[in-house]
């Protein structure tokens, strides 16, 4: 019953993280089913830090990995398209739209050169989690917040957030010590980062302030070494849109669990954005979108058309 090929999947996230228990676990099942058990996978943890993952795959130290595009500034521009605020819909909708717009517009940029992209996905909407109460956008002015770069950083500075730049594993101690008041993350991360202990307040903007962009990548060499029928089965039944949809759904699931956990935790509070704030945020959203679309245009994408396509796809899903 043992598989012909067991792919080594490198993961930099903790074993209990939904990327491992959801996305990778599902991906392994999907590959096994599609290939009649010929291709399977196993996780290897902590081989190298996040920005090294693509090198690991390029050089064969791992066959598969997940990368967060924001960790490699300068390398990825096209991927910012999906990070923009203002799209309506959950992570599954966004991930499917992401794959489609990638095939049509972004793939030509060849930003993942050297590896095979097998899933593109975004986590759920990024929100503000804070240790002191934030009940409106105005409260964010001057709030010391750990926030990523790229689109998230642009939104943050438009909101008047003061950026505290520490790596993700330092989030808990940074909030606990008061060196930061808040962190911008998808809601699902509340569980893993124990935010119910150190960031009891969640300000909830519909569609989020930004989204994070991920790709699951595979060694091209490894893929080419597989028998042709196996390659075909994987390409048709697993890789691409199916794997992207699955990953998005898995991010959504982690959000649902975290919302539930937050509601049940002691002393926590979820504040939905008011209509006023939603309208105000639309302006910020537009500014940031214009800026990013200009960047994309410069990189050689028909930015406007690509943006419209994502909007339409997400509305239609």
């Amino acid at each position: 019953l043992s598989a012909e090929t067991v792919l080594k999947i490198s993961s930099w996230l903790p074993p209990t993280h939904s990327v491992n228990t959801g996305i990778f676990a599902n991906l392994i099942t999907m590959m096994e089913e599609a290939t009649g058990g010929e291709v399977s996978g196993e996780l290897v943890f902590g081989l190298a830090p996040p920005p090294a993952q693509m090198d690991l795959v390029l050089d064969g130290a791992a066959d598969m990995a997940i990368i967060f595009h924001g960790y490699q500034p300068g390398r990825f521009v096209g991927t910012k398209l999906i990070e923009l605020p203002g799209y309506e819909g959950n992570a599954e909708d966004a991930s499917v739209a992401y794959w489609r717009v990638y095939e049509k517009y972004l793939a030509a940029l060849n930003e993942h050169r050297g590896v095979k992209v097998i899933s593109l996905n975004t986590h759920g909407p990024g929100q503000i989690h804070s240790s002191k109460e934030v009940s409106s956008l105005a409260d964010m002015n001057g709030l010391k917040t750990r926030i990523g770069g790229g689109v998230a950083g642009d939104v943050g500075s438009a909101l008047g957030l003061i950026g505290i730049n520490v790596p993700a594993p330092k989030v808990y101690e940074t909030l606990e010590s008061g060196a930061a008041d808040a962190v911008a993350m998808n809601v699902g991360e509340r569980v893993g980062f124990k935010l119910n202990e150190v960031a009891k307040y969640l300000y909830d903007m519909p569609g989020g302030l930004y989204r994070g962009s991920f790709a699951v990548i595979m060694s091209q060499e490894k893929f080419d070494s597989l028998p042709e029928d196996v390659q075909k089965a994987l390409d048709e039944q697993v890789f691409g849109e199916p794997a992207s949809r699955m990953a998005g759904a898995s991010w959504d699931e982690s959000d649902t669990i975290a919302y539930e956990a937050t509601k049940n935790a002691e002393g926590t509070k979820i504040t939905p954005a008011s209509d006023d704030d939603i309208a105000k945020f639309e302006e910020i959203s537009k500014e940031v979108t214009d800026k990013v679309l200009a960047e994309l245009q410069e990189a050689g994408v028909d930015a406007k058309a690509a943006y419209e396509m994502v909007k339409q796809e997400m509305a239609g899903n």
Binding site: K8, L47, A48, P49, P51, A52, D55, L56, L58, D59, G60, A61, V166, P167, P169, K170
Partner: peptide, 23 residues
């Protein structure tokens, strides 16, 4: 376990990344 290129590359990445670890 993983071949020549993988091993040297992993080593090189750790040399680069460890020295730049914020923590």
């Amino acid at each position: 376990e993983s071949g020549y290129r993988a091993s040297i590359s992993m080593t090189a990445r750790l040399i680069i990344d460890t020295s730049q670890d914020y923590g």
